[in-house]
């Protein structure tokens, strides 16, 4: 399916997705694959369908035709909570933390579907090990954290559910340039820990620099796909997104 072919068995596969909002045809025959342990970037400008793709993957929006397969299981008609339970997790756009709740409570909500207390303790340990700062700030209200720290909480919250696939919606949005860089370092760090990721971004340069592969969406169609290194060299993409 992918031009380059993924070596590992795909954890996520969208095949022939067509999504509509009312009569408006948003996603047009979208095919995307994310292999196990792979970091894939989904690029695209405003109104290109990036968020709709994410919503389709999560099941918040249902496609009219096409299938969503997750970990070898067809989930097209399954509800969001089922997919989360199967190992999807999302770091939403603008982080969307629960502001008046503490860092600890935010993390706990990420593990909402995990009722096993002991396993949850392990999850907390894992997240705190990755982000020691969150342990330090665990009693602080999430809304009072700075932007970068909130990004960590959002990542930590998503990791609490032991995701097999982490979806990231515009992680660079609303962050200062220095924080964007740090934010992508965090993403790389989490990816190195073995989590497959789909990073949806406008910041093509940054997103491709850490990704294995990339897709480019434009007005609801995949117009380019390939290895991240190749995409970075692609003339069209450079013109469209990198301004060079």
């Amino acid at each position: 399916m992918s031009a380059n072919g993924t070596t590992a068995a795909p954890i996520l596969r969208l095949s022939g997705i067509n999504t509509y909002y009312g009569q408006i045809h948003i996603l047009q025959d979208v095919n995307i694959e994310v292999g196990a342990g792979e970091l894939v970037s989904l690029l695209g400008g405003n109104a290109s369908g990036k968020s709709t793709t994410l919503k389709t993957i999560l099941g918040i929006v249902k496609p009219r035709t096409g299938t969503v397969e997750f970990a070898g299981d067809e989930v097209t008609d399954k509800r969001t909570s089922y997919r989360i339970g199967q190992g999807m997790a999302i770091v939403p756009e603008n982080r969307r933390l629960f502001g008046p709740m503490s860092v600890l409570e935010n993390l706990e909500m990420g593990a909402y579907l995990n009722k096993d207390g002991k396993a949850r303790t392990e999850d907390f340990d894992r997240v705190y090990e990755l982000f020691p700062l969150l342990h330090e700030r665990r009693a602080q209200l999430a809304g009072t954290l700075s932007g970068g720290e909130q990004q960590m909480v959002a990542m930590g919250r998503a990791l609490m559910s032991r995701p097999r696939l982490l979806l990231m919606d515009e992680p660079s949005m609303g962050l200062a340039p220095i924080l964007v860089e740090r934010s992508f370092e965090i993403i790389k760090q989490v990816h190195d820990a073995g989590v497959a990721m789909l990073v949806v971004e406008q910041n093509a340069n940054m997103a491709l620099s850490i990704a294995d592969r990339g897709y480019v969406l434009s007005t609801g169609r995949i117009v380019l796909e390939g290895k991240a290194a190749d995409l970075l060299q692609n003339e069209d993409l450079r013109k469209a997104y990198l301004g060079r």
């Binding site: 999560l58 918040i60 969001t80 909570s81 997919r83 989360i84 339970g85 999302i90 939403p92 969307r96 933390l97 629960f98 502001g99 008046p100 709740m101 409570e105 935010n106 706990e108 909500m109 990420g110 909402y112 579907l113 919250r157 559910s161």
Partner: peptide, 21 residues
């Protein structure tokens, strides 16, 4: 857990849904 879920639901229903609540 339910109480905290209520509060997170009030704060941000979409994020709560995305947590699988």
């Amino acid at each position: 857990r339910t109480g905290r879920a209520w509060r997170s639901l009030r704060e941000d229903p979409l994020a709560a849904e995305a947590m699988g609540m």
